[in-house]
C-alpha cells in the first residue's frame, strides 16, 4: 500500500513542522517578517530565498555564502529548498533566542572580521531625530566622535 503521507509531503525528508504564523526575524538592525516558515524541534526553518534578506548569505552548492565567505552546510540543515536557520546559527556560533514567533539572532562572530584585530569601525543604520536613516559610512572623510548617552 502506498503511503499517502509520503506522497503528499514529498518523501520522508519533508518538513513536518506546522507552518508558523508570520515569524519575524531580528538580526543586526534588521527586522524581517517571513511570509512562510516552519518550526521543528524548536528550530526555525525558512525557504532558501529568504536568507539573503535576513543576513545577506545565499545558498550555493558549496554552502551558505556572503561576499568571500562560504559556510559549508551539512545536509541535515537543508531539506528541499528549506534551511534550518537555527542550525545554521549554531554552526556559526550565533546566539538565537525566540519568544513565540519573534526570533532574535545575535552577531555572527566570523563576520565581525575579528573586531579586536581589524579596527574597522562597524557600520550601522540608525535613525536621527527627523526619522532619516544615518549610516556611519555617510561620514567617510571626516573624523568622528561617536558618543552614546541616554535619558535614563
Amino acid at each position: 500500500m502506498v503511503n499517502r503521507r509520503l506522497l503528499l509531503f514529498g518523501g520522508a525528508t519533508a518538513l513536518t513542522g506546522a507552518p508558523q504564523a508570520r515569524a519575524t526575524v531580528l538580526y543586526g538592525d534588521r527586522e524581517v517578517e517571513l511570509t512562510t516558515s516552519r518550526v521543528e524541534k524548536g528550530d526555525l526553518w525558512i525557504p532558501f530565498g529568504d536568507l539573503p534578506g535576513i543576513n545577506e548569505f545565499s545558498i550555493k552548492p558549496q554552502g551558505a555564502c556572503r561576499a568571500d565567505i562560504c559556510i559549508p552546510l551539512p545536509k541535515e540543515l537543508k531539506r528541499k529548498g528549506w534551511l534550518n536557520l537555527s542550525g545554521f546559527a549554531r554552526k556559526v556560533k550565533q546566539a538565537v533566542v525566540n519568544d513565540g514567533a519573534l526570533w532574535s539572532f545575535g552577531e555572527i562572530p566570523t563576520l565581525r572580521g575579528g573586531f579586536p584585530e581589524s579596527r574597522l569601525a562597524p557600520d550601522f543604520a540608525v535613525k536621527d531625530r527627523k526619522g532619516d536613516t544615518v549610516r556611519l559610512t555617510d561620514f567617510r572623510g571626516r573624523k568622528i566622535l561617536l558618543l552614546t548617552w541616554a535619558s535614563w
Binding site: A121, F139, R140, K143, I144, L145, L146, T148, A150
Partner: peptide, 20 residues
Amino acid sequence: SAYQLVNVPSGVWIDERGRI
C-alpha cells in the same frame, strides 16, 4: 551592540577612513 559599549556616556573615535 556593534561597538561593545556597556555604559553611558561612552565615546569611540573613528578616523576619515573608518578605522577605530
